[in-house]
């Protein structure tokens, strides 16, 4: 027997080297699979929260208002949330790439697979009231950690975006009552981006993009509010959040959605 082999066998005999038990590897595999599932769920949750945040604040629609809207979109996007989402997607990709079904194929397929999975998962969540329910629950119970995050990322619309109902049509535009209860005159010019042939009537709900100065917005873009894409800000007039203990049914705009 050569020294090399002898040395290793001697260490095994004396108990210096010991094999790890089978359950160690079973546990490791179970934990790895569980870890992958948890990271996958978190990635989907974060991506869906990102979409929810962008929809809720209205930032999602601003790129359709040209270069100014696109710049606004870049400036107003929640970059910390985007970074967290990307980190979790990358982590999920790294975990998935450890499985033989993934590394036996070009890794671009795993990347596409992870992205499609996260997008489909988040779109599925978008079809449910999950985030709205979490937001309501967190606000009602003032959940530490959750309530402030939902409030700052999905509860406050950045300056430059207004949602309101047309209460008067004027020669140069219309007057809206915003979801905060302010009366705002909206000036529409040839430079205003809107759907061709748009006509606004009293009672229409619109989303206006532009700088608010002295109760007037020179509209950069106007978009009719057609569904629950842009619900009113919570805790305000028509908002969906109720005060603690309040029993009345919320929502001006949710009612409209049902109609």
């Amino acid at each position: 027997m050569n020294d090399f082999k002898n040395n290793i066998l001697e260490r095994i005999k004396t108990g210096e080297l010991d094999m790890k038990p089978h359950w160690h590897f079973v546990l490791k595999t179970v934990l790895f699979v569980l870890g992958t599932i948890i990271v996958a769920l978190l990635a989907v949750y974060l991506l869906s929260f990102l979409f929810f945040s962008l929809h809720q604040t209205g930032v999602w629609f601003t790129p359709s208002f040209g270069f100014v809207g696109l710049s606004y979109f870049v400036m107003s996007s929640p970059w910390i949330l985007i970074s967290f989402t990307l980190v979790f997607l990358l982590l999920l990709y790294l975990l998935v790439s450890q499985y033989s079904f993934s590394y036996k194929r070009p890794l671009v397929f795993s990347m596409i697979g992870v992205t499609v999975f996260a997008l489909l998962g988040s779109l599925l969540i978008q079809q449910t009231p999950m985030h709205r329910n979490i937001q309501n629950f967190a606000e009602r119970h003032n959940l530490p950690g959750v309530a402030p995050v939902y409030r700052s990322l999905a509860g406050e619309r950045p300056k430059g975006l207004v949602l309101g109902t047309v209460i008067e049509v004027t020669d140069s535009g219309f007057v809206i009552e915003s979801d905060k209860g302010e009366m705002i005159r909206v000036e529409i010019s040839s430079a205003t981006r809107q759907k061709p042939g748009s006509v606004y009537e009293v009672g229409d709900t619109v989303f206006v993009f532009g700088k608010l100065e002295n109760g007037v917005i020179e509209a950069v873009g106007v978009r009719p509010h057609t569904g629950d894409e842009l619900p009113p800000m919570p805790g305000r007039k028509g908002g969906q959040f109720m005060e603690k203990g309040a029993n009345e049914r919320p929502v001006l705009f949710d009612e409209e959605i049902k109609r």
Partner: peptide
């Protein structure tokens, strides 16, 4: 390369249940 290869065998033995 004895040390390196010995390291491989030690890892193989300790992880043989996997």
């Amino acid at each position: 390369v004895d040390d390196l290869v010995q390291d491989v065998f030690i890892k193989a033995y300790t992880n043989i249940q996997s």
